[in-house]
């Protein structure tokens, strides 16, 4: 149902992508919710330790990580829009741009991991870093899987596998990538910013 007062409204309501992907996303979000809340509860118990440990993280790096993921998400969303307009070549380039932007995230994150490991702030250092490595590492694995999916989507798009009437698979893959984005926008303030 739509109303004229809602600028985002649409006459026909439709769930993009495959239903199976949405159930997968819900399952993933549930797991991340448990980890995020575990981090928050541990922060309540070890407030001083979390404040001191967080000082080892650079929030500007966290911001750069965020912007690289969000930019990648924009390119992926624009690719879907181009396929709907039967512009597969442009969509392929946009998916490759999404992949490139996600590479920035990977390089920055690996640098951060390397820096922390060099300082001896590994998983066994304290509770903050145990949860930091588990939470961000689990998310990092999702980024890597998402990059594989983006690459696969780009290859299929290049071969003309998607069109205005046949792009549910593309939507599903891109939805997974947006889920990875959404988890990060909650992780970022919790891990890098809040005190």
């Amino acid at each position: 149902m739509s109303t004229s007062a809602d600028p985002f409204s649409s006459p026909a309501r439709r769930l993009p992508g495959d239903l199976a992907m949405w159930f997968f996303i819900l399952a993933e979000l549930t797991v991340f919710a448990i980890l995020i809340l575990a981090f928050a509860v541990a922060q309540m118990v070890y407030a001083e330790q979390f404040d001191e440990s967080r000082a080892a993280l650079d929030s500007s790096i966290g911001l750069a990580l965020t912007l690289s993921l969000l930019t990648s998400g924009l390119f992926a969303a624009l690719a879907v829009e181009q396929v709907r307009q039967a512009r597969s070549a442009r969509a392929t380039l946009l998916l490759l741009a999404a992949l490139g932007s996600s590479c920035v995230y990977v390089v920055l994150k690996l640098n951060e991991y390397s820096h922390l490991a060099g300082l001896g702030l590994g998983m066994e250092h304290n509770t903050f870093f145990t949860l930091y490595w588990i939470l961000t590492g689990f998310h990092f694995l999702h980024v890597l899987l998402g990059m594989v999916i983006l690459g696969w989507l780009a290859a299929r798009c290049r071969r003309g596998a998607y069109g205005p009437d046949n792009h549910s698979g593309l939507e599903s893959g891109v939805l997974y990538w947006h889920m990875v984005d959404m988890v990060w926008v909650l992780l970022f303030p919790l891990v890098y910013v809040l005190r």
Partner: peptide, 25 residues
């Protein structure tokens, strides 16, 4: 305020990027 911005970003992703503004409520 920091948490509110996080929610605002999640809203932009769900309604904007994921297009749930057009999805069943």
């Amino acid at each position: 305020a920091v948490l509110l911005t996080a929610f605002g970003k999640a809203w932009l992703i769900t309604d904007g990027f994921m297009e749930l503004r057009h999805a069943p409520r």
